[in-house]
Amino acid sequence: MTTPRPIAAILDHPATWFVARLALTGPYILGGVVKLTDWQGAVAEQAHFGLQPAALFAALTIAVELIGPALILANRLAWLGAGMLGVFTLLAALLANAFWTMHGPERFMATNAFFEHLGLVGGFVLVATISHIRERHA
């Protein structure tokens, strides 16, 4: 079965590719900007998760949250930006949503958050894959 023509027209539209990448990377851009404008909060967040030196981890987090989306949105080295954000998201999920150590409602919420983050990782794999395919066919 082929894709219906109206849906194909939407999927083929150049804006769709950009808007999809923006939707996927938007939370990271926002997170990076918020951390950049609240440096003390960014450092405190890293310390809360036991990452030391907290200032170094805050700077690395900001860099990943801003550079990764820039590469994806520019569709230049999108594989690198997607890889940066995918690895970052997986590590953050393991660190912040260790549901296997929790009980009760806390475990339920952390389990959901963990698997939502895995979904984002899958989204970044798709971005890298689609970017690669589009590059080959350009």
Rank of each mutant, 00 (worst) to 15 (best):
D12F: 04
D12Q: 09
D12N: 15
H13Q: 06
T16F: 07
T16G: 06
F18D: 08
F18S: 08
A20C: 09
A20S: 11
P27R: 07
P27V: 07
P27K: 05
P27E: 10
I29P: 07
I29H: 07
I29V: 15
L30Y: 10
L30A: 14
G31Y: 00
G31E: 03
G31P: 04
G31K: 00
K35C: 02
D38I: 06
D38N: 13
W39S: 04
W39F: 05
G41L: 06
V43K: 01
V43T: 00
V43G: 01
V43M: 07
A44W: 00
A44M: 05
A44S: 07
Q46K: 07
A47R: 12
A47Y: 03
H48I: 07
H48W: 11
F49Y: 14
F49W: 09
G50C: 06
L51A: 13
Q52E: 15
Q52F: 01
P53N: 05
L56Q: 03
L56G: 02
A58Q: 05
A58W: 04
A58E: 02
L60P: 00
L60A: 12
I62R: 00
V64W: 00
V64C: 06
G68P: 06
P69Y: 06
P69K: 02
A70S: 12
L71P: 05
L73F: 10
L73A: 08
N75R: 15
N75Q: 14
N75C: 04
R76D: 13
L77C: 08
L77K: 05
L77A: 11
L77E: 08
A78Q: 06
W79C: 11
L80R: 11
L80M: 12
G81E: 03
A82S: 14
G83P: 07
G86Q: 08
F88E: 04
L90F: 15
A92C: 10
L95I: 10
A96F: 08
A98W: 12
F99I: 09
F99Q: 13
W100M: 07
H103S: 15
P105S: 11
E106S: 13
E106G: 12
F108N: 15
M109L: 15
A110N: 11
T111K: 03
A113P: 13
A113W: 12
A113M: 15
F114E: 03
E116P: 09
E116Q: 14
E116Y: 12
H117V: 02
H117S: 06
L118F: 04
G119K: 08
L120K: 03
L120W: 11
L120M: 13
V121P: 07
F124P: 15
V125C: 05
L126A: 13
V127T: 01
A128N: 02
T129R: 13
I130H: 03
